[in-house]
Design a protein around this nucleic acid. Sequence first.
DNA 1: CACCTTAATATACACTTGTATATTTATTTG
DNA 2: CAAATAAATATACAAGTGTATATTAAGGTG
Lengths: 181, 181
Amino acid sequence: MKTVGRKASINSSEIIEAAINLVGPHRSISSLSLREVTREAGIAPNSFYRHFRDMDELNIAIIELAGKHLRTIIREARQLIINEKSVVRVSVECFFNEMRQPGSTLPILLREGTVGSGNFQAAIKKQLDFFASELQIDLVKANALASRYETHETPVVAKAITQLVFAMGGNALNAPDSDLK
Amino acid sequence: MKTVGRKASINSSEIIEAAINLVGPHRSISSLSLREVTREAGIAPNSFYRHFRDMDELNIAIIELAGKHLRTIIREARQLIINEKSVVRVSVECFFNEMRQPGSTLPILLREGTVGSGNFQAAIKKQLDFFASELQIDLVKANALASRYETHETPVVAKAITQLVFAMGGNALNAPDSDLK
DNA sequence: CACCTTAATATACACTTGTATATTTATTTG
DNA sequence: CAAATAAATATACAAGTGTATATTAAGGTG
């Protein structure tokens, strides 16, 4: 598949990478400016538009990437689950372990909270819902082995655990390591 | 106590009020500009400095106000608590009820999440800790009546409930009313 | 009244932002 | 090689920002 015209010198992933480079403990993606990102990426401001319509589109792409990453990690770890207790335990341990990894996109997902455009917030909600629904599947399985609650409660339980874990993660972000237990 | 010089035509509370006016579903305090706030308050940009050093100081003042407000509300409702279940139930009901009140400062507290300066984030954490510690007191009382867990677990339980409630609140902010159950 | 003191405003400056338009640069194809 | 096409950049502009400095306005005190 050949194309005509000048070869692209940068791709969307590299722009995403540049944006991720810029977020830190006190900097959220939704506060980044277009020019900051292009500066970091080493391209002219207008080149940005070749890859994303605007910053909102870039931010949503990053959130989706972070969510995908998280689910992969958790899914792998879930292989060993045998009962309800370990579903939660394993999920939580994985979650916190991943958060400590340098360069993880998970902190980004957590830090965004509930600010930003409507589309952006919807993107975040979607990722949290994915997490909850996977957790729910495991809870159902675990409950089949040793039933702990009514089956109609499972979605609620999954959602509660998800929110708790994410809230703890968000807090832990700005806490000393010693609090991570 | 008399003072000399021109009478002040605006006070800090009115500036705080103006800032609160500006926050909405997709607008967090930490994203407001100094000029926006003064425009809303009907004063010249530089007059801001008579009352706050910078936007960070204003934002922290608002968070502390919101936290104080929340604690008052919850404290009143806690009078009727008799057992562990109702501690949580009453707290949560109060929390969501307050959130539905028009003009409540509670959404502000929730929406900020984990963005903003270090001082600002510390201010938010402090308010959450207040909430948790009051909840803890009630849990201890409730546990004395009908013990449900080891006493050394109480702080953890209080913290978990707090985080869960706040996370649910944050999500509910951007959800249709029907999800508020 | 003149004088002092404080609050508030006016003006100004340097800087950043998003983006519209025009131009240059690199690449493939005839 | 020249033409066509696509990517990237250059230039520019209007709008917004925080804040330094100078000025004006309003109140109390001698």
